[in-house]
Design a protein around this nucleic acid. Structure first.
Length: 322
DNA sequence: ACATGTGTTGAA
DNA sequence: TCAACACATGTG
């Protein structure tokens, strides 16, 4: 089996969140709700014993050994989500994948996270790449990972007693060709610059720190200044490195945040154009930052989105948990 | 040996 | 896109 010493989950069962559920929830009310109340019985006749029982859940397929597989299709290809003892767990796995792969439009077996009481889980789900989510589902480590990642945003004044301060989203910018080109600078839209990054009067420029990710991620330092020539606010020194490391291309979104409370620390993240939700670019597996991923930019991830990334990462997991 | 996950197909 | 089904492959 998995011989990962850093596999944070030693619990094999109890893998997925299971709020109280009713079968077949779909956003499209038009969908037929077969709801075969109870599968009533297992194959009774001997002829049926050869045939596997089909699942009442979407994305769930029976396995010869009585377990249940979960799968989702994307781009004419099947993405295997793992096998589960309980049909219900397989259905939950499918739901999570569906919401990550298809966003709001996902048709799920159970009520979607967007209707859940816990907004944190949705942001967690969307902050991970498809490959990461699939990997977690297959290894049954989703819940552990969810627990390991503290909320980025907390609802209102919630009890942020624990670790990380809540963050406030300042603004996003869709980077332009020149933002990721040879000019080595990012133009901050003036309205946002003056509102969130006020420069002391007559200041030549300042160094701003931006932390990445949700748990003590890498800190990026950019020079921030005002260019009289173009009458624009810009991030200069340090920006090109960010572009390169992240593999930013025109159209990608860069998000700016600031923690509430004392620190007022700035945060940054980026995500490909059109992707749902915020993409926290810090790659963490089992709560450990993976070194190799420093060389994995978004371009590569785009093409790797299939699955191989998970395999790569598995081999990289050598240390124990901190 | 047996569980897992893929190849493939037909239906929607 | 999807699940059914056969079975190749992985793995303990």
């Amino acid at each position: 089996m998995q011989s990962n010493s850093c596999n944070s989950s030693s619990s094999s069962t109890l893998d997925l969140p299971s709020p109280t559920l009713h079968p077949i929830h779909s956003n499209h009310s038009a969908i037929t709700s077969p709801a075969p109340t109870t599968p009533s019985s297992e194959p009774s006749t001997e002829a049926e014993s050869k045939k596997l029982p089909s699942s009442q859940y979407k994305g769930v397929v029976p396995q010869p050994n009585g377990r249940w597989g979960a799968q989702i299709y994307e781009k004419h290809r099947r993405v295997w989500l793992g096998t589960f003892n309980l049909e219900h767990d397989a259905a939950r796995a499918y739901d999570l994948a569906a919401q990550r792969f298809r966003g709001r439009d996902a048709i799920t077996n159970f009520p979607p996270l967007s209707l859940s009481a816990d907004p944190h889980e949705l942001s967690f789900l969307l902050s991970r790449s498809k490959a990461e989510i699939v990997d977690m589902l297959r290894k049954h480590t989703y819940l552990d990972e969810l627990r390991l990642c503290p909320p980025l945003f907390s609802p209102k004044n919630a009890s942020v007693v624990s670790s990380k301060p809540a963050r406030e989203h300042l603004f996003d910018k869709a980077v332009t060709p020149s933002d990721v080109g040879k000019l080595n600078r990012l133009v901050i839209p003036k309205q946002h610059a003056e509102k969130h990054f006020p420069l002391a009067d007559g200041a030549k420029g300042v160094l701003l720190n931006f932390e990445e990710g949700c748990a003590g991620g890498k800190v990026w330092r950019f020079r921030y200044s005002y260019w009289n020539s173009s009458q624009s606010y810009v991030l200069t020194k340090g920006w090109s490195r960010f572009v390169k490391e992240k593999g930013l291309v025109a159209g990608d979104l860069v998000g700016f945040y600031r923690s509430k409370g004392e620190e007022r620390q700035f945060y940054i993240d980026c995500r490909p154009r059109g992707e749902e939700g915020g993409g926290v670019q810090t790659f963490r597996l089992f709560g450990v930052n993976i070194g190799i991923l420093g060389s994995l930019n978004m371009n590569k991830k785009r093409s790797f989105e299939g699955m191989e990334v998970g395999l790569l990462m598995k081999k990289q997991c050598v240390g124990g948990l901190g």
